[in-house]
Write a protein that binds this DNA or RNA. Structure first.
Length: 318
DNA sequence: CTAGTCGCCTGTTCGC
DNA sequence: TGCGAACAGGCGACTA
């Protein structure tokens, strides 16, 4: 499933191949992929057709295309894309066979390359697209700051529906002090906070477990009991895991007929905790100890940890 | 206000 | 073998 590094790979692919393109012939094959766009299918098509793509930005797992009209005037609305659980954005020649779960297609025209089809494919329909108004991104003093480090134009604008989301660990403006402030004013376990988009964005169940394993922290350790050092180590761990995945997935997007997709070879190899129930903890093995990764329910989903290096805290909290 | 649950989805895997 | 249940999980909407 697409996690933040995969979304970033998609964003880079889109930035590389779509900026400067004109959108034409938008087709929506499944209206459920526009669930979050109240005006509906025909309005979506009417508003998009003929526009130019001028930038592609991302925060957490949300990305958005900044648009301009034929006169080059920036639009108030951006095209927001979320991949959800199973979404893919593919760039393909129109002659390529149609994918089974194809939901939205748009033709992209740019002078220096063959026409491309942007195809949104989504099996489980947790993802989708919508148009949303861009609003200023303000710093603590109310001054405009870049919305996301991934924006080429460093636009100080962010879609209204994405504005409540915290910066992600790969954002150059990620604020560890702000994170700690949020951790201190809750009674929840640390993993619940890791998965809360308004606290830190882009961390899903997989990366939460991997970051906690690297930082040797139990998922139920009260967030407010983490020292500043532990908080830093946890964020560093999340960044390390994400950079590793980005390196693994970010290599192939520049091929001729690009597959900007949500797959990563990373998940097959480099996981230390997630999905590893019953397998030895590699760190314990390196230290001459022996322990097996366990799977436990937390927040109605699975959590994986090493019982030796991620000990249950005296006071734990959901 | 916060904490926590629910529903949206479909393909795969599991137990009976 | 067939079939329903459980599971996977991001996140907005909702309830307590």
């Amino acid at each position: 499933m697409p996690e933040l590094p995969e979304v970033e790979v998609v964003r880079r692919g889109l930035a590389h191949h779509c900026i400067g393109s004109r959108i034409a012939d938008v087709r929506v094959l499944d209206a459920r992929s526009l669930r979050r766009f109240a005006p509906g299918v025909s309005e979506f098509i009417r508003q998009l057709e003929g526009l130019m793509i001028v930038d592609c930005a991302r925060r957490g797992k949300y990305m958005w295309l900044v648009l301009a009209d034929e006169m080059g005037n920036l639009l108030d609305d951006a095209l927001v894309i979320h991949l959800g659980m199973s979404g893919q954005v593919l760039l393909k020649d129109a002659a390529m066979p149609v994918e089974k779960h194809l939901k939205i297609v748009m033709e992209l025209y740019r002078e220096d390359q063959k026409p491309l089809q942007l195809r949104f494919v989504d099996q489980r329909i947790f993802g989708g697209m919508f148009l949303d108004q861009l609003v200023p991104t303000l710093g603590e003093g109310g001054e405009p700051v870049p919305a996301a480090s991934s924006s080429k134009l460093s636009l100080s604008l962010i879609p209204r529906s994405v504005a409540h989301i915290a910066r992600d660990p790969l954002d150059s403006l990620f604020d560890i002090k702000l994170l700690r402030k949020k951790l201190l004013k809750t009674s929840s376990g640390i993993k619940r906070l890791l998965l809360d988009q308004s606290v830190i964005s882009g961390v899903g169940n997989i990366y939460a477990d991997e970051a906690l394993w690297r930082a040797k922290l139990h998922y139920a350790k009260p967030a407010r009991s983490l020292s500043l050092t532990q908080t830093k180590e946890l964020v560093n761990a999340a960044q390390d895991v994400m950079h590793t995945a980005l390196d693994a997935g970010g290599t192939s997007f520049d091929a001729l007929y690009v597959n900007v997709n949500g797959e990563s070879g990373y998940f097959d190899r480099s996981l230390n905790a997630y999905g590893q129930a019953g397998k030895p903890c590699s760190r314990c093995l390196d230290n001459g100890k022996s322990s097996l990764i366990v799977r436990e329910p937390f927040m109605n989903r699975s959590s994986y940890r090493c019982p030796v290096c991620q000990k249950t805290p005296k006071f734990s909290h959901r």
